[in-house]
Amino acid sequence: MKKTIASVLGATALFFAVEGAHAATAQQASSDVVTVVQDVKNGTYKIDPHHTQVLFSVSHFGFTNYSGNFSDISGSLNLNVKDVSKNKLTIELPIQSIQTTSTKLTEELKDPNWFDAAKYPTARFVSTKSVKTGEETADVTGNLTLHGITKPVTLHVTYVGAGVNPLDKAYTVGFQITGKINRGDFGIMTYLPKVGNEVDLNIAAAFEKAS
Score class of each variant (00 low, 15 high):
79 L>M: 13
83 D>H: 01
101 T>I: 08
88 K>Q: 14
126 V>K: 13
96 Q>L: 07
177 I>Q: 08
138 A>S: 13
175 F>D: 01
196 G>S: 08
135 E>T: 15
126 V>D: 14
120 Y>N: 14
131 V>R: 04
109 L>S: 04
171 Y>S: 04
163 G>P: 01
105 L>P: 04
169 K>L: 11
102 S>H: 08
167 L>Y: 13
150 T>S: 09
124 R>E: 13
116 D>T: 02
144 L>M: 04
89 L>A: 12
200 D>V: 12
163 G>E: 10
110 K>S: 02
108 E>L: 08
174 G>Y: 03
195 V>G: 00
101 T>M: 06
143 N>W: 00
191 Y>T: 05
186 F>S: 00
193 P>S: 14
78 N>Y: 13
154 T>R: 03
198 E>M: 14
166 P>E: 02
122 T>K: 12
80 N>A: 14
108 E>K: 10
198 E>G: 03
183 R>K: 09
178 T>Q: 07
104 K>R: 10
148 G>A: 05
188 I>S: 04
174 G>Q: 09
121 P>Q: 05
127 S>K: 10
187 G>S: 08
194 K>Q: 10
84 V>A: 05
136 E>D: 15
98 I>E: 05
194 K>L: 10
198 E>Y: 04
77 L>V: 00
84 V>R: 06
190 T>S: 01
79 L>R: 06
163 G>F: 06
187 G>I: 01
124 R>D: 12
122 T>Q: 06
103 T>L: 09
97 S>H: 01
190 T>C: 05
164 V>T: 15
115 F>L: 10
200 D>C: 07
89 L>I: 15
172 T>Q: 13
88 K>Y: 07
80 N>F: 12
133 T>W: 14
162 A>F: 03
88 K>R: 13
179 G>P: 07
94 P>F: 07
157 V>Q: 01
199 V>I: 15
77 L>P: 10
142 G>T: 09
182 N>V: 02
122 T>A: 08
195 V>T: 01
80 N>W: 09
198 E>Q: 10
76 S>G: 14
152 P>G: 13
115 F>R: 02
200 D>F: 12
172 T>P: 00
